[in-house]
């Protein structure tokens, strides 16, 4: 039974790598499946943003959501230690003194949790975040279960890294294309203005540039307006005539 559900789970996680992929969706599904398949009562995931700051990404219950936020606010807890060290962190009984995370332990017990296991989300050397698994009863999570949970977390990590790399490349393409398009449009606009005002191409550039400066607008934006033959082109040319006379 567990094996079959696990198989389905991996397929589900792998499916998120195709079109329409969403990281938050993936992590919610990771939390829900951990609760369903493993002997845990709740799960939550913290994810590092591009600058390395942790934020709450997913939680199986509202209680866990608050607990995770509490960790972030209070800057102590198993998820944080796990993220910073990159290795698994666990406490089999949050009621035993002395506690490694006194404030977190009290908050967790208030929510009805006694044991916690934190697993890193990582791909090779890149630390992405961490997943917390909570249990109501004291006692260490079965080793087999920990291995399964880590495997699920590893698959999720691949999905996250993949999505981030793709997002970056789209941004680069956008910037490169944007810059090159502006360059061409500026040249076309020089020609349009030169022809309409019966002036030299180099003078047309000077007209556009001073119009952009005087009106506090980007040159590329003004050039686009010129190419689209916007009404303001007449203003540009009349300013030019006035300053010449």
């Amino acid at each position: 039974m567990l094996e079959r559900r696990l198989g389905e789970m991996f397929v589900e996680l792998a499916d998120t790598l195709v079109a329409g992929f969403d990281v938050i969706e993936l992590l919610h599904s990771l939390c829900e499946r951990c609760v369903e398949l493993l002997e845990v009562d709740a799960a939550g995931v913290l994810l590092a943003d591009t600058r390395g700051a942790l934020t709450l990404a997913a939680a199986s219950t509202e209680q866990v959501r608050l607990l995770e936020l509490f960790q972030l606010q209070d800057e102590e807890g198993p998820c944080l230690d796990c993220f910073h060290s990159g290795v698994q962190v666990a406490s089999s009984d949050l009621g035993v003194e002395p506690q490694r995370w006194p404030r977190f332990s009290a908050a967790a017990r208030d929510c009805g949790f006694t044991a916690v296991t934190a697993l890193p989300l990582r791909l090779r050397d890149e630390r992405l975040g961490a997943m917390n698994l909570f249990r109501s009863d004291a006692g260490a999570l079965d080793e087999e279960m920990v291995r399964v949970a880590q495997a699920l977390a590893d698959v999720a990590a691949i999905g996250i890294v993949h999505e981030r790399a793709f997002g970056r490349s789209e941004l680069v393409v956008e910037q490169l294309q944007g810059a090159l398009n502006s360059r061409t449009v500026i040249e076309q606009a020089k020609g349009v203005l030169a022809e309409r005002g019966r002036i030299d191409v180099s003078d047309a550039f000077a007209v556009m540039r001073s119009y952009a400066r005087d009106n506090n607008r980007l040159l590329s934006e003004v050039a686009r307006a010129v190419v689209l033959q916007a009404p303001e082109v007449a203003d540009m040319l009349s300013t030019k005539t006035r300053s010449d006379s």
């Binding site: 680069v172 910037q175 490169l176 944007g178 810059a179 090159l180 502006s182 360059r183 500026i186 550039f205 540039r209 952009a212 400066r213 980007l218 040159l219 590329s220 934006e221 050039a223």
Partner: peptide, 19 residues
């Protein structure tokens, strides 16, 4: 080409048209 992108350039300076 990718190193040549200067995202803030808008062409106001002819030497820096964003690329």
């Amino acid at each position: 080409l990718m190193t040549g992108i200067t995202p803030d350039g808008d062409g106001a300076d002819p030497a820096d048209d964003g690329f």
